[in-house]
Design a protein around this nucleic acid. Structure first.
Length: 398
DNA sequence: TTGGAGTCAATAGG
DNA sequence: CCTATTGACTCCAA
């Protein structure tokens, strides 16, 4: 296999300590934290390729690994970019994502486990920080050098800059743009509309997608991508809550103290206000503005009308929230007077959980959790229906 | 083809 | 600079 464009040659080689679960990083802080630690010392010892290691790796606690890596990086002022590019072979954005929302080991594909194995390996390398710091220094040196010689025209030393844009002279000229698609940025209203649509139909039919695209004046591919991404990200968040919920034990680790009046990093709003429901003239007419440049977007006709189809023929359109008891525990759920109410007339999909503000407080994400679970259930239903229609009459096995 | 998993890479804030 | 977010892409399996 082609393989790793990774850092300095080796990697993978050297008798990397054992891939035991949470390695006791050579770091200072953080005494607590122990975790059951998965035994299993990886038989094959060194010389293996990452992929082989992944294959034989014992179950790793991605959450702990991730936490540790973040700690080491911040403690030493090492950025995600440097770490990602030299250690993981990933870009900064990917690293950020990975560190912030690691999926549980058992839900990762072989490929997805790779970065975690690399992180574990890195953590167990006593000179990890030192090496990265060196890289950092080298980069800076190279940068300075380049910067200096800039005056003297082109610079010899440098890797392939991915074509385009040569030297200083070529400013961002219009040069038949094209290869520089602007990158679509969905407006908040558009996202809202899409989320609403998702609530009704996590897996919209091509027809529905088309309609949505028209109403929002977006390319259908954008709508399709949005649904792919949204589903995927919702799923991922569910994993996270799953982990955190289960992380109760171990180390007393009491996070979650949201006592102080201050703080409250609550991202209020954040999409989750119960579904828009209120007819809301939705999508307000997008300011004609429209893009100075390209595409004149037509005015979108407001109203969210269509889309409402309905799966599950049952009764009628209205009947929104009759929701069966949420499968998850959710004992104390009292409807908070303040927030609650609000018409609540929107259909939220087959399953919708009463938004009732969990007085139990707990954390603000609680309501979103409920919502995500609802979405998840809808996903499941979708699959079941799909399967049903396919092999109708078949035997269902659960 | 469709959907999921991983990523990339442009961007928005700090 | 750095990190977080997110639309678009690539691969792959069903």
């Amino acid at each position: 296999a082609p393989e790793s464009p990774l850092s300095s040659g080796e990697e993978s080689v050297r008798s990397v300590g054992e891939l035991s679960g949470q390695a006791q990083a050579p770091e200072p802080g953080d005494p607590s934290d122990s975790q059951p630690s998965t035994p299993l010392p990886v038989p094959g010892h060194s010389g293996l390729s990452i992929q082989e290691m992944v294959a034989v790796s014992p179950e790793l606690d991605t959450y702990v690994i991730t936490k540790k890596v973040k700690e080491v990086l911040t403690d030493n002022n090492l950025g995600q970019r440097l770490f990602g590019e030299t250690i993981l072979g990933l870009t900064q954005g990917s690293v950020s994502d990975l560190l912030a929302r690691p999926k549980p080991w058992h839900k990762l594909s072989l490929k997805g486990r790779e970065p975690f194995v690399r992180m574990q390996l890195w953590l167990s390398d006593p000179r990890n920080v030192e090496k990265l710091m060196d890289m950092k220094r080298m980069e800076k040196k190279a940068y300075m050098k380049r910067r200096h010689s800039s005056v003297s025209e082109s610079q010899p030393v440098d890797s392939v800059p991915t074509g385009g844009d040569f030297g200083p002279g070529s400013s961002p000229q219009h040069q038949q743009h094209q290869l520089k698609k602007p990158r679509v940025v969905l407006a908040p209203e558009e996202k809202e509309a899409l989320k609403r649509a998702y609530q009704q139909k996590p897996y919209p039919s091509p027809k529905t997608i088309e309609e949505l695209a028209n109403q929002l004046n977006l390319k259908t591919s954008t709508v399709i991508n949005w649904f792919h991404n949204y589903r995927s990200r919702i799923r991922r968040e569910l994993f996270i809550e799953e982990i955190q919920a289960g992380a109760a034990g171990s180390t007393g680790d009491s996070r979650e103290g949201c006592s102080s009046p201050t703080a409250q990093t609550i991202k209020v709003g954040e999409g989750d206000s119960c579904d828009g429901t209120e007819s809301d003239s939705a999508l307000e007419s997008r300011p004609a503005e429209a893009s100075g440049p390209e595409e004149g977007r037509g005015a979108m006709s407001e109203g969210n009308g269509g889309v409402t189809k309905e799966l599950s023929g049952d009764g009628g359109a209205g009947t929104p929230g009759r929701s069966p008891a949420p499968p998850d525990s959710a004992p104390t759920d009292s409807c908070a007077p303040g927030t609650s109410s609000r018409k609540e007339g929107g259909v939220t999909g087959l399953f919708s959980f009463p938004e009732a503000t969990p007085t139990t407080a707990r954390n603000p994400r609680d309501s979103s959790l409920r919502k995500k679970k609802a979405a998840n259930l809808n996903n499941i239903i979708h699959r079941l229906e799909k399967a049903a229609s396919r092999e109708e009459g078949a035997e269902w096995e659960f």
